[in-house]
Amino acid sequence: MTTDPKSWLKDRSELGVSALLLLLGVLVLTDALTLDVDVSARGPVGPATVPLLVGCGLLVVAVLLAVDVLHGGRGEAEGGEDVDLDAPADWRTVLLLVGVFLGFAVLIGPLGFPVSGALLFWGAAYALGSRHPARDPLIAAVLSLLTYGVFDRLLGVPLPGGPLMGVL
């Protein structure tokens, strides 16, 4: 057993989950207790009852989880076909993807779906390690246009066309 506090914490980073659950529980309870119950209470069970139950549940689970972690319990990271749990986590890729996704959220209004969607796919593929200068953007453009066509024109689910669709 190491006594280094930094690695002790790193080994028990799941305590952070416990802390988040605790925080969430406090949040739910505060919200429930500040509800204006008397005015509109109909029947014996008002709008605050279930939130109170859920909030208390969150606090209890937070404590139990912390106890479990301190006793050596660990949540098993989820496996999968393309998941290599032996390699260290690559958070840089995740951050890049988050950035690309937020960029899409910002651009869909001004640029419309076909353009921003293509950028989303291209950007995400790039972040995940694809480096084909011609194939990547081509697939992205075709996929985005097709999706726009199917959803907006065929299924009647409106997506913004943006300036590009104004030209075409």
Binding site: D82, F113, G117, F121, A124, A125, S130, L143, F151
Partner: peptide
Amino acid sequence: IPRPYLYAGILFFAAVGAYA
């Protein structure tokens, strides 16, 4: 199928779904 395309595609369709 190249994995970057697969997971980029998942993100893409998830975004379409949420926006719709």
